[in-house]
Every structure is written in C-alpha cells, then in structure tokens.
C-alpha cells in the first residue's frame, strides 16, 4: 500500500517536529503491506468501469431551473442520507437554491433584468481548483483528489470547523447533532455521518467510481446540470463553456471554483 509512504514524503520536510510522534501515536504505522498479496489480475466482469477525468466540473444553466423544482436536491439528499432537522441552525445541505443576489453579490446592480435577478441557481461545493478548505484543514480530512474533487474523509475529521470558516461559499455543514434519527429514509448503500464532523457535496464520487453520473445531474429532468471533464477538449461541458458566457461565484477570491453558471 502506498498511502503511508506518499503521505510521509509529502509532509516529511515540514513536519520534522512531529516526527518523534508517529512512532508513539501510530502503532499501526508500519502499514499492512501484507494485504496486497497478489497483483491485480482481472476485474469481475460485472463490475462497471469507473468514470474518470482530469478535472471534474459542472455547468449550471440556472435559467432552465423551474422556480419550484427541487429534483436535484431531493435526489442528492436522499442518496447521501442528508438529514433534515427542520431548523436553520443545525441544517445540513449539499445542494440547494439561493437568490441570484446572494449567489453573485458582486454581479448585480439595481437595473439588472428580472430574468436574471429572479433566478435561484442551485449552489453546492465548488470543488475549487485552489480550495481554501483543504489548505486550512489541520488533519487532511478534507483533501483534493487528482481529478479535482474536494473530498471529505469522515474518518479523519476532528470537527474543528476551520474549513467552514475558510469556505467562501458556505458550502459546508457541521453535524451539530446525531443525524440518523432525522433521516426519513436511510439509503443503506451510503453511510451516514457521525455527529461532530463537517460534510458537503462530494460530486458523487461513489457513483463516478461505478460509472454513474452525479445524482443531481441524473435527476435533473431539465438537463440544467452538465457534468464532465473540463480538461477534455471534446467533453460536453468544455464545449458548452467555450460557447456560452458563464460566471463563477466570487471568482476574485482566487479559489477557482469548478461550478460554472451559464447565462
């Protein structure tokens, strides 16, 4: 297994101070090389090919979203066991709709067309290119995958909520209390989160690995959400972005959000 070694090299230079500790604190530090007994030979034919990309991104054509449509949210929240506490304080959300003015505070003026200002685009984690949440996480519980997805490792999160302060998009939610009893119907194929960890949209990486598109994209009957590899010049999303004008939320902050709003 390579996790250990790679992690180590990444951090070795700057964490000399803590080098004394792993020996004490990580009794299983030697890692379990033994588990990889043989080389991979073949995949079960039944196991689907995963979807892969150099950088995953999403384009949102908010104009296509009917005012009262909640399809993407319902699909996502049901799939990911997102609880509903019924109060804004403890609220957890992965994808939801916000007023145009709040989504794009810098892109409004008093005379904008109603067609714009009336929009309520869906918002979610932007899976930033340069994510502040990953930077600030003291344990690496939030990390960025090679394909750009900003992931949460719920096994590692200590619940310090630095990432919530760092995220300029309000995309993150804290599990302030036990969630299980507030989930109307559990999806047994996806874990719930323990109280005390932060969570957010994961671009349905569990579905991508099985060759499926994100649940919101799939659920959207209006085809308002386009998901794909922006680094692939032939991908649908790339073609759309090259063709149409798009905005990103608070792009001046330099985080490089990967949700593109088409106008």
């Amino acid at each position: 297994m390579t996790t250990g070694r790679r992690d180590f090299l990444k951090t070795a230079g700057v964490t000399l101070l803590t080098l004394v500790f792993p020996g004490i604190f990580s009794p299983v530090g030697a890692k379990e090389n033994t588990f990889r007994v043989g080389a991979p030979q073949f995949l079960k034919s039944s196991y689907p090919q995963p979807l892969t990309a150099k950088r995953w991104a999403m384009a949102v054509d908010a104009a296509k979203c009917p005012a009262d449509c909640r399809d993407c949210m319902v699909a996502c929240h049901a799939l990911h066991n997102v609880p509903d506490f019924g109060n804004p304080k403890d609220e957890i959300k992965w994808i939801w709709r916000e007023n145009f003015a709040d989504v794009f505070p810098n892109e409004q003026h008093g005379y904008s067309a109603h067609i714009l200002t009336d929009l309520q685009p869906p918002v979610m984690c932007n899976h930033c290119e340069n994510p502040p949440c990953v930077r600030v996480c003291p344990t690496g519980a939030t990390f960025q995958r090679a394909d750009g997805i900003v992931m949460m490792d719920y096994h590692r999160c200590i619940g310090c909520r630095f990432c919530m302060a760092a995220c300029p998009y309000g995309a993150r939610s804290m599990n302030y209390r036990d969630a299980r009893s507030h989930i109307s119907e559990l999806n047994k194929n996806f874990p719930t989160r323990a109280k005390g960890v932060v969570e957010k949209c994961n671009f349905c990486e569990e579905r991508l690995s099985k060759g499926l598109l994100p649940a919101c994209v799939e659920a959207c009957t209006q085809k308002a959400l386009v998901f794909g590899d922006v680094e692939d010049p032939l991908s649908e999303i790339r073609l759309i972005l090259e063709k149409r004008f798009s905005l990103r939320r608070r792009s001046h902050l330099g985080a490089g959000p990967q949700i593109y709003y088409l106008l």
């Binding site: 951090t11 803590t18 500790f21 930077r135 600030v136 003291p138 344990t139 690496g140 590692r156 200590i158």
Partner: peptide, 13 residues
Amino acid sequence: RVMNVLLHPNPKS
C-alpha cells in the same frame, strides 16, 4: 480524534 493533528499533520494548516 484530536490526536489526528499529530498523526496526520497538515503543515499548510
């Protein structure tokens, strides 16, 4: 999990 700060330190944080 407080020890994760030492077990999995992120020097950028």
